[in-house]
């Protein structure tokens, strides 16, 4: 049997809200070490990679590896039936064709249970190599969300340039052009408010804003986001999930014809 109880159930709610517009169906890979998911959007330009380690659940039981194919739109609707402070348990019987979701109120006086039919998903998996990135930018996730939204006024692409001075986002379209430049923070009250650039070499890449906008829906998961860049390599956008894992998005850069 597979059973994973998540005391902070709202983490799962935020996760599914963050990916449901990008990915329709996904295979949750359940292993003794934890739960993971890898899925591409329908145009195969971006990829979602989720990891939730077993030790982030209480308790976590997985006797054998299981793949749970789930329609994320359905899962999102079911999760809307839970309260933000509910404890959420995901369960799958060994011979079952469904995943069971249990929502438990903090005082345990309300218990709801939903049985979700599993779906067969044939999804192509990609091997993501370990990469030494040219530049790693860390910033508040709300700032990332705001910049992506602002740049969308101008066009459908954004060029992101990292240098020792900071990071510059620029876009241009029919109505005009604009940019936002963030300097590395010198002194901040909280580390979560800082902008840092860890630079091996200056790099500039162009990306479709539509996908960055979808990635930025994960902002409620974490106060900070890291963006990792290398020349001619997909962008990595990472949100940490408390102390238990991460939600990563990869996006292929646009390249000159």
């Amino acid at each position: 049997m597979f059973e994973a109880r998540l005391p902070q159930g709202q983490i799962l709610k935020k996760l599914i809200e963050a990916v449901r517009e990008l990915v329709t169906d996904a295979n949750f890979e359940c292993k003794p070490s934890g739960l993971s998911l890898q899925a591409m959007d329908s145009s195969h330009v971006s990829l979602v990679s989720l990891l939730m380690r077993a030790d982030g659940f209480d308790p976590y039981q997985c006797d054998r590896n299981r793949t749970l194919g789930i329609n994320l739109r359905t899962l999102a609707s079911v999760l809307k039936c839970s309260s933000n402070d509910d404890i959420i348990t995901i369960r799958a019987e060994d011979d079952g064709d469904s995943a069971i979701l249990i929502f438990e109120s903090p005082s345990s006086d309300r218990l709801s249970e939903f049985d979700l039919k599993l779906v067969d998903i044939d999804n192509e998996q990609l091997v993501i190599p370990d990469t030494q990135y040219d530049a790693v930018v860390r910033m508040p996730s709300a700032e990332f969300q705001r910049i992506v939204r602002d740049m969308q006024i101008l066009g459908d692409s954004v060029t992101i340039a990292c240098s020792k001075d900071g990071v510059k986002f620029s876009a241009n379209g029919e109505i005009g052009s604009g940019s936002v430049r963030l300097k590395q923070s010198s002194a901040v009250d909280s580390e979560d408010d800082a902008v840092t650039v860890d630079l091996q070499q200056a790099v500039s890449l162009t990306f479709a804003l539509r996908y960055l906008s979808l990635f930025s829906k994960a902002a409620p998961l974490s106060p900070t986001v890291t963006l990792s860049f290398s020349k001619d390599v997909p962008l990595l956008v990472e949100f940490r999930i408390a102390d238990m894992g991460h939600l990563r998005f990869y996006l292929a850069p646009k390249i000159d014809e």
């Binding site: 646009k254 000159d256 014809e257």
Partner: peptide, 14 residues
Amino acid sequence: GMKQPVLSHFFRPS
């Protein structure tokens, strides 16, 4: 102009 390659242009299938 610029074109949008798919991810498999960069990452190989497993």
